[in-house]
């Protein structure tokens, strides 16, 4: 039997201390960790249950900022009236993620830390080669089944897509992740694979996410999350976009815009080129379409995922025009 020790952390200090142990992994809602343990990807020597730590599930939202505790449930955050009101893209990203049952179990911290859905990553027995799991072993996906794989931020080492929805909205609105000693931009917290596919986050042994903070803004208040997928529910994005929009007094000229992509990149992908191309422009379909194409500059496909290059800009267009219409 694969034995491991189980520790229940009573407070955040205990969690941090335990998390510094080699082979330790945190357990929050368990919907990712238990899955990965079952398929042999996660083999923790110590499981540190943080789900009983008090005070880590608070949701505190003002016009200035939202502070969401790491243990807040996805469903609670999605349903929070203030989040819906001031950060609609955040609520929408959560509602469209996973299933009702999973959202009731899963936490915000765990959600950020979920791992890729690359099928090769999740099947070590049949596909030993995976740089993310076993650095230097190669990548089984390249040359294989790649329909869900990334077209942006890939490397020769790894082309796995970051699968989450929430983080897409977070990078669009410059959210930060609170690690106790350090606070990092969510955008910097996630790492593209480069030559080190195994390093997905800027998180050090002994660090625990305690909260995320999202600065309030006009763009965040007028925001949306559009997710395209094969089926209507309970599926990861084929392509998604979190978009926030602030218009000038004329109701047509773009003052501020935020655009981030999901489902197409190795990490939550902020599309600054699209934003820059649209700032100061009048919001018409033609302009928006042209600008959205910029997001795919440098995109590289691996055959079956080619469609994402055409699809992703269209998702952004839909999101921007939807926000424009609600003027």
């Amino acid at each position: 039997m694969r034995d491991f020790s189980y520790l229940r952390a009573g407070n955040i200090e205990a969690a941090r201390n335990a998390a510094a142990l080699p082979g330790a992994m945190l357990l929050a809602g368990g919907t990712t960790l238990i899955d990965l343990a079952k398929c042999g990807v996660a083999e923790p020597s110590t499981v540190i249950d943080i789900s009983h730590i008090e005070g880590l599930n608070a949701i505190d939202v003002t016009a200035d900022r939202a502070v969401i505790g790491a243990l807040a449930r996805m469903s609670h955050v999605a349903d929070n009236p203030q989040v819906k009101n001031l950060f609609p893209a955040v609520s929408e990203a959560l509602w469209q993620a996973a299933s009702a049952q999973l959202r009731n179990m899963a936490t915000i911290g765990g959600n950020l830390m979920q791992r890729t859905r690359c099928p090769y990553f999740r099947d070590p027995q049949n596909f030993p080669a995976c740089n993310k799991r076993a650095p230097g072993s190669g990548c089984s996906a390249i040359g294989g089944v790649t329909r869900g794989h990334a077209v942006l931020g890939t490397s020769e080492a790894c082309i796995a897509t970051y699968p989450g929805d929430l983080a897409i909205a977070l990078v669009a609105f410059d959210a930060e992740v609170d690690l106790g000693e350090r606070k990092l931009k969510v955008e910097d917290f996630f790492l593209a694979p480069g030559a080190t596919a195994e390093q997905e986050h800027d998180i050090r042994p002994g660090e625990v996410i305690t909260a995320i903070e999202i600065p309030g803004s006009a763009a965040a208040r007028r925001s949306t999350y559009v997710k395209v997928r094969d089926r209507q529910s309970y599926e990861f994005a084929a392509a998604s976009a979190a978009v926030g929009l602030e218009l000038e007094g004329d109701g047509r000229t773009v003052r501020d815009i935020r655009v981030a992509f999901g489902g197409v990149a190795t990490k939550p992908w902020r599309a600054r080129a699209v934003e820059e191309a649209l700032k100061g422009q009048m919001l018409d379909e033609e302009t928006v379409r042209k600008a959205s194409e910029l997001a795919m500059e440098g995109a590289v496909d691996h055959g079956a995922n080619h469609y994402k290059i055409a699809l992703a800009p269209r998702v952004v267009v839909r999101a921007i025009l939807k926000l424009g219409e609600t003027a």
Partner: peptide, 21 residues
Amino acid sequence: RRHGRIVNGNFADYMLPTNAD
């Protein structure tokens, strides 16, 4: 095609309709 193996043999990846469909 290189391994002759089904890679979506699970209920997250083998797509079946949900109620919403």
